[in-house]
Design a protein around this nucleic acid. Structure first.
Ligand SMILES: O=c1ccn([C@H]2C[C@H](O)[C@@H](COP(=O)(O)OP(=O)(O)OP(=O)(O)O)O2)c(=O)[nH]1
Ligand SMILES: [Mg+2]
Length: 610
DNA sequence: GTGCAGGACCT
DNA sequence: AGGTCC
DNA sequence: GCAC
């Protein structure tokens, strides 16, 4: 559900428990556009409980206040969301306020204290605004009737009128709970969970019990709404049946400063598998989110999961959990909740609110569909894979996505290690028949010794000591493999087939009775084989850690080699201004050495497995 | 409070 | 240039 | 969400 849709819903259904926002018509922006996050929903819910009317879409003729989730929403982000070119185009009588403004009872006067943008001028929240000298008042209503009901149904089109200039006061630091953004919301949620009282309400003597408004109440109401929504919104009882597997299988462990330095402790069976499963689910939810901050949560959940995989004992305490590299308080508490209760309430809360998450996850399971496309299709009204096949809502699939859809289940299944090996053993002779001096090997999770593989990663190179190289080999090989019925579909192909460095992605199968499997070929020049092996062996988290370490040491590491003297654009540190000089690339070991990382065998670069 | 890996192909 | 994937 |  979109934030706007939630705003409309909340207006009608939330019962009011406070009145200090009576008469306000608030446009709330939590940084989400297409899917209202739990954070946004909780905040809207609370605004409504305090008497505000939520305006689903920004309209300067209706809105009396704009409230944003500070720390999450940038100026650019907000302007884009409300389709306004410049801050000065927002009428001066509409204050733009940070979330904490709404959490205290004293919302009169002094908007400036909670002003979201200190640079704003000629507005009631400007730093230099003085109502006695130069008052700013809303224009007289053009049409329509008076209307100041506490919780009016916002029909969104009716030009409603302004209710005085609510002016604020009282800074009032962030009272007790949920005031500042996702992280704080989570923190407060955790707190509430731990004290786990279904209690109706806390001490009424508390001067500020609004500040304690438990999210539990929001969740409870949200749950009851969900059922209505399912019926109302889509008469389409067709559930997304197709859930797939993938369960983070990367690994690494705790140890020193960088993960890649890590000390591994692999065991045959992971004693914390239940924790890993739950955290993987949470990770998947963050993978759907459009906001950039969630990428790093995904990264951190990945590292935490890897650390857990490597950990040989059952976790017994928060402190023990926090001893793992990459696990701090928040994750440690989640881990302990799972260990103690076998469950993570946060997951239920996320999913309870609507079916968004299920559907987006379903769509993201299609190869070539990421979060943006998945949300776009959801917005277009699609809810099932069949909707997509029918082009419902005018959605169009790229050719790769069509293949991804056709082989949805195949692509989302992992294959037994033995099958990967069998396929590779069919492929290798074709390569050697083209050139017996080729070096051909299987990389990725297979090289790391995993029991199952998400795909087959094959590296091809060739020594140049005889003055020859492997230019053109891949196109020949693929031709043979297509004839042999092994390669069946292409997903992405090199642009210059004669290059010594190229990358191919496609589907293959062991034989005509077997499932389709993902297959990748990486062709690389002989000189960079060490860096390429390192890269292609992974896992991804290990690579990122090692590259981070290289970066911190003033180097840059990629699949071609380890480079010194790289100068980065200070504005965009990912952009390199020069290429630097290659200081290691021929062997994995020299790269480990130059980075001071203790050597690890490929199978050691796997921690745990399953 | 800031940074988080780095690159290739597709559209 | 943005999106997805490795 | 974590580390510095
Ligand atoms: O974001 C990524 C993804 C992958 N890789 C590297 C490491 C990885 O090991 C290798 C192959 O990628 P793949 O996606 O096949 O991962 P895998 O480790 O082989 O696991 P799976 O069994 O899921 O294929 O490419 C990265 O460096 N960054
Ligand atoms: Mg792989």
């Amino acid at each position: 559900m979109s934030p706007g849709a939630y705003a409309e819903r909340v207006n009608g259904q939330v019962r009011m428990s406070e009145t200090y926002l009576n008469g306000t018509r608030i446009y709330f922006f939590g940084g989400d556009r297409e899917l209202a996050t739990v954070s946004t929903k909780a905040k809207m819910f609370r605004l409504a409980r305090c008497g505000a009317t939520l305006v689903p879409e920004y309209n300067p003729d209706i809105v009396t206040h704009i409230v944003i989730d500070d720390n999450i929403v940038s100026l650019h982000h907000l302007l884009e969301n409300i389709s306004v070119k410049r801050l000065s185009k927002v009428p001066g009588h509409i204050p733009i306020l940070k979330w904490p403004w709404a959490t205290t009872d004293n919302t009169k006067k002094h908007f400036r204290i909670h002003a979201a943008f200190a640079t704003r001028r000629n507005s009631v929240d400007a730093i230099d605004y003085d109502p006695d000298i130069n008052p700013i008042v809303p224009p007289a209503p053009k049409k329509g009737k008076e209307h100041a009901a506490p919780n009016p149904e916002v029909t969104n089109s009716s030009g409603e009128q302004m209710v005085g200039n609510p002016s604020a006061k009282s800074p009032r630091e962030a009272s007790s709970s949920s005031s500042r953004g996702l992280e704080d919301e989570e923190a407060s949620f955790e707190k509430q969970r731990v004290s786990s009282k279904p209690r109706a309400n806390s001490d009424p003597a508390n001067e500020n019990n609004v500040g304690e408004d438990p999210l539990a109440e929001f969740y409870a109401q949200a749950r009851t709404e969900r059922d209505q929504e399912v019926q109302e919104n889509l008469g389409d009882g067709n559930k997304a049946t197709n859930l797939h597997a993938e369960n983070g299988n990367k690994s690494h462990s705790s140890g020193s400063r960088f993960l890649c330095d890590g000390v591994r402790t692999s065991a045959g069976q992971c004693p914390n598998q239940d924790v890993i499963d739950k955290l993987s689910e949470l990770k998947k939810i963050h993978e759907q989110r459009l906001m950039t901050g969630d990428n790093f949560r995904v990264l951190k959940y990945s590292t935490a999961i890897n650390a857990l995989r490597a950990y040989p004992k059952r976790i017994r305490s928060t402190e023990e959990a926090m001893s793992l590299n990459g696990v701090a308080k928040k994750t440690a508490e989640k881990i302990m909740e799972i260990i103690r209760t076998g469950d993570l309430q946060r997951l239920h809360h996320e999913r309870a609110v609507s079916d968004d998450i299920r559907v987006i996850e379903l769509f993201q399971g299609i190869y070539g569909v990421g979060r943006q496309i998945a949300h776009r299709w959801y917005n277009a009204g699609c809810r099932t894979l069949d909707d997509l096949r029918e082009g419902k809502g005018g959605v169009k699939l790229s050719s790769v996505q069509q293949i991804g859809l056709q082989y949805y289940d195949d692509i989302n299944s992992r294959m037994p290690r033995a099958e990967a090996e069998e396929i590779f053993n069919k492929i290798k002779p074709f390569a050697l028949k083209i050139d017996s001096k080729l070096y051909v090997d299987i990389m990725g999770s297979f090289r790391r010794g995993k029991a199952d593989c998400g795909d087959i990663d094959i590296i091809i190179t060739r020594p140049t000591d005889d003055g020859r190289n492997h230019s053109g080999v891949l196109s020949k090989l693929l031709k043979d493999l297509r004839i042999a019925g092994i390669i069946t579909e292409d997903l992405s192909i090199p642009d210059d087939w004669s290059d010594l460095e190229l990358c191919y992605r496609g589907l293959c199968r062991k034989d005509s009775d077997s499932r389709r499997r993902r297959i990748d070929f990486l062709v690389i020049p002989w000189e960079s084989r060490g860096a390429a092996l390192l890269y292609y062996t992974g896992d991804d988290i290990f690579n990122r850690s090692m590259r981070l370490k290289a970066n911190k040491m003033g180097y840059s590491l990629n699949q071609k080699g380890l480079f010194a003297g790289v100068v980065r654009d200070p504005q965009d540190r990912t952009r390199k201004l020069n290429q630097g000089t290659n200081i290691a690339s021929a062997t994995e070991r020299e790269i480990f050495d130059k980075l001071g990382v203790p050597w690890q065998e490929p199978h050691e670069r796997v921690r745990g497995f399953s």
